[in-house]
Computed example of a mutant assay.
Amino acid sequence: MKIYQANIVPLNADIIGSAAHGSALFVVNGDQLVVTIEMFDTPANQQHWEHFHGFPDGQTAQIATAAQDVNHDGFVDLPETEPVSGTTMVPFNDTPETMDIPNDAYPVADANGYFAYTKIVPLKQLDAEFKKAFHDSDLELDKRVIYIHGVANSLDLPATVAGEVANYDAHVTLPIAVGKINAVTLD
């Protein structure tokens, strides 16, 4: 069994009006990956995309901070995270093993901004899709970071905030929290 965890800290908190935080636990047990994510103080009553990000070449990803706001608009948007965190890799939605990122199958926060997510993921299928998408790369969870995304559509975002994916605008993809995934125990 291999166990990984992340302490998820706020990103963009001052400008979105909430300091989203929480934790993630990843347990590799045989041919399964059990993912547990618990979040507090996220924007309420809305869906939150969540993924791990990283570099296909095996470089260790780091969390984005306010320093990544290269256009100085006050927001660290999705493209600004890429130099330190890499690309979006695995979604934590209804079917992570399919690696279908742009969809409406992510957790929804309650009226208090709380949500909990637990999913048992078939590791062989996830690994095969991951290798197909990222040129034979391995999951290497301890080289990844987790992002939680999503703000209310009513939040006024400047035109400089980028991050449109498929039919989803920057309100859906704006990072609100991030955590470095670390190995806890390795067998």
Rank of each mutant, 00 (worst) to 15 (best):
L123R: 12
Q47V: 10
K124F: 04
V145H: 07
L174F: 08
D127W: 00
D110Y: 14
V121R: 01
V165K: 12
L78F: 02
S137R: 07
V165E: 09
T60I: 11
T42S: 15
A6I: 05
P56E: 06
I181N: 06
H51C: 09
A105T: 14
K131E: 02
A133P: 00
H48N: 14
T160G: 11
E97T: 12
Q46T: 08
I120E: 07
N12C: 03
G179A: 11
G30Q: 14
S18A: 10
V27F: 00
S23Q: 09
P175E: 01
A177T: 06
G150Y: 00
D69A: 10
A67C: 04
P91C: 06
A13R: 00
P96A: 09
A105N: 15
Q32E: 13
V76Q: 03
V161I: 04
N153V: 04
L157Y: 02
V27G: 03
A170N: 01
E140G: 06
H53M: 10
E82D: 10
A105H: 12
T160R: 05
G113N: 06
K132F: 07
D100F: 13
T98S: 09
V145F: 10
Y168Q: 12
M39K: 05
I148N: 04
T42A: 13
D77S: 12
V9W: 00
D156V: 11
P102T: 08
Y114L: 06
N29S: 15
Q32C: 09
Q32K: 15
A44N: 05
L141S: 05
F40N: 13
G74T: 04
I37P: 01
V172N: 11
F115C: 04
Q47R: 15
G113R: 04
S154I: 02
E80R: 05
E97R: 08
N45V: 03
I148R: 13
E97Q: 13
P56G: 04
N167C: 02
T60K: 15
D187A: 08
K119T: 14
I148G: 11
F92D: 10
